[in-house]
Design a protein around this nucleic acid. Structure first.
Lengths: 241, 241
DNA sequence: ACAGGTGAATGGTCAGACCATACATTGGTC
DNA sequence: GACCAATGTATGGTCTGACCATTCACCTGT
């Protein structure tokens, strides 16, 4: 942490630290030290500002950052549940980052889809090895909602999202599940395009068959088949990627 | 987008939209429409506030969020380069999210390491198939810096980070490279622990041999060997995970 | 042509006020 | 005593206006 010894003066430019960054650092300290955990409430904005010696505006900027990262949620009003409460909801934050950088052309759709293939084939493999009954039930439910009367492209897309999310969670790895969620959300609108490209409602039957194949492999405990089924499904959903 | 027809009144609770969220939405609109891209400057905070009909404080909260997501950087002063400029730097943002949620115990170290193994074995495989001369040079340079006089645990750790980042970038997938970067940063301090656990300076020789093996497989264009070498290396670096 | 001074535009910060929300408290009514 | 309405209060949400620090553009005098 200290400046290394040198021959002469070492005029490193003073790294300007803004007030809200200090606030962020203090809060992260508390989290890293275990003094703040999910479910805990932060002091009120006014009290926090006074305690840290900064203005309420600076505190609020820090809280907005934490909120954007899925670390806290703020609610108005009074009572034990009001105020800023720490949570663990990184999925939306991840999706936001991916989506924004796709928009800025820093991430290509190709790379997003490829990453999803890497992560999701592993998830399918892991799910086939260890999925529990409740995960299998969720997968079956999602597939069942991909057919029947009253099916619309929107409902189909929702069922598809639920299926892939359930598959990721069945892998038993929270980080993988969160990444999967974010990766799919970031290209969410393209999933609708895939359905339209294949034609409605024929596409529903085709894609549902894909999901049935994945489900069967997971239920049967066949990791290689599950991985292959996911790979084929993604290739069909995003041709050219 | 419109409310679906129902039998009676559908009193959906009004989703309160805060001012800074509106600002975020407007800016993302411009990005998604291609009217804003990396390198472009945003209007000044005061002008933006007036244009959108909100206060400067609300604009600033939105800008802090975008900054936390690696989408823009703000600089003071005057001139063409001053103000808020759009960039594409998602790596730090990703690392921040992962680190914070590890601290909140929502992500386990085990899952982080496992995810890194999934992504990095793929990266090694891909790098072995298509790494260019400049990527190979970076890998060789990083390995060379893992030996020699004046080597400290800190310098070794830096060379290790450079090696893994170069490997990820050699895979040709920007999303994978960014994820790798974030995953490694999130568990950065644990990398130092690994070196200390194995004992210094013996650990440097052991881990350098791992990197040499990865490098040789990549240079030789042997994807399976490269993947296996990475898997073994991570198993040695994070035993028990 | 050059050097220096000055102004202006930018973000960074703060103080104070007011509003909206939702619970806590109080007091009255049955 | 139990219930319910009115009031109080702590919370976040927003705005206004001011001032500072930094950096460059411009002007001015040599």
């Amino acid at each position: 942490m200290s400046t290394p010894p040198t021959d002469g003066p070492d005029w490193r430019p003073v790294r300007r630290v803004r007030a809200h960054e200090e606030v962020l650092a203090r809060i992260e300290e508390q989290i890293a030290a275990g003094r703040l955990k999910a479910g805990d409430r932060l002091p009120g904005e006014r009290q926090l500002a006074e305690s840290l010696g900064v203005s309420r505006a600076s505190v609020r900027e820090a809280l907005r950052v934490l909120e954007a990262m899925g670390v806290l949620v703020s609610t108005t009003g009074r009572g034990p549940d009001a105020g800023a409460v720490l949570v663990g909801r990184p999925a939306d934050a991840l999706a936001d980052i991916l989506r924004l950088h796709v928009g800025l052309a820093h991430f290509s759709l190709h790379d997003i889809v490829e990453t999803r293939r890497i992560v999701e084939t592993w998830a399918a493999r892991s799910a086939a090895e260890q999925a529990g009954p409740e995960h299998l039930a969720r997968l079956r439910d999602a597939v069942s909602r991909m057919a029947g009367p009253g099916l619309t492209p929107d409902r189909f897309n929702q069922a598809d999202a639920d299926f892939h999310l359930a598959l990721a969670e069945a892998s038993g790895n929270t980080v993988v599940a969160t990444l999967m969620h974010g990766l799919r959300d970031a290209v969410g609108r393209h999933a609708v395009e895939a359905v339209e490209r294949l034609g409605w409602p024929e596409s529903a039957a085709i894609l549902r068959a894909d999901h049935l194949r994945i489900l069967a492999a997971v239920e049967g405990g066949r990791p290689d088949d599950a991985a292959a089924a996911v790979r084929d499904h993604l290739a069909r959903s995003y041709p050219g990627h």
